[in-house]
Design a binder for these strands. Sequence first.
DNA 1: CCGGGATAGTTTAGGCTTCAACTATTTTCC
DNA 2: GGAAAATAGTTGAAGCCTAAACTATCCCGG
Lengths: 165, 165
Amino acid sequence: MRLLDAETALADAPPGHKDELRLWLRLLTCTNLIEAEIRRRLRAEFDTTLPRFDLLAQLERHPGGLTLGEISRRMMVSNGNVTGLAARLEEEGLVERRVSATDRRAQSLRLTAKGRREFARQSSAHEGWVAELLGGLSLPEREALQRLLGRAKASVRSGLQEVGA
Amino acid sequence: MRLLDAETALADAPPGHKDELRLWLRLLTCTNLIEAEIRRRLRAEFDTTLPRFDLLAQLERHPGGLTLGEISRRMMVSNGNVTGLAARLEEEGLVERRVSATDRRAQSLRLTAKGRREFARQSSAHEGWVAELLGGLSLPEREALQRLLGRAKASVRSGLQEVGA
DNA sequence: CCGGGATAGTTTAGGCTTCAACTATTTTCC
DNA sequence: GGAAAATAGTTGAAGCCTAAACTATCCCGG
């Protein structure tokens, strides 16, 4: 009986969502702080951008090449976005495109030798930056955070499902 | 949004990646998932964008008005960015500008009545969305996450200091 | 074989964002 | 008072990003 009352009371209570909102704002602040710093350093030290770096990272993980469509899905950005990004990277000589032998609509992208060299430098610096920025957390803290963020991710995904994407 | 898939891909990657990197990728994934959904809903339900919403939120918190420079600092974006944002919001009749009486360089922005009405609608929906998306976490989980993100923020800030901002 | 639907990619219009150069004004300080 | 430095804001060039319309190609069923 008590429990039922508590539940009812909770349902009737004014929407006290401030708590979740504060959590979201802190999550956002934290991510933006790190992301802005990484963008800044990519620019300052390698004269490149995060999207370019991300695209190269995809290709690095798939030495056999990826089609623009696959890249677009993996990076979760629009098709047209990848078109432009690929064009700039190609112009810089970091990637090369080859029309598919079996499907004349498709073309696959892969790193050039220069692209591989360049990404290797960037990637190793990037890893160091992240380690440096998050290095103030102890190992147990990092583990706990990793776990809780996993829980948050699951919560969000189930929130998206409900709406029936 | 960008590195969403990177976290998954990291599982396949050869070992030697620091766990800080994995933590960063999960943080990014989590934030981008939520942010993308909020942008989507702002667009679908209110035909607006996150930056516009954020600017209105700043003005809502400061009924006396804010100068463009103050807004730029609070939103942590460039001056020129705010110029354009403010111009669009003014054109939509949501904000109004007034040149400062004491400093002819400065102008302060404040919400119009329409802006206040509009933001009230958006804000209340927004709060509900966030609560819905993060609702899968228990209260203790949310508290722990809030605390750990605070620690992460502190770690990042001290990382920035070192470089001598 | 052929018509229609699906798929790969490009283009376009428009918004967001930065940096750097610029104008206008205020403040500092000699 | 007046020159120099600081500050408020705008502008322009360039990149990032999306949605929607478009072209080209492929594939499937009749």
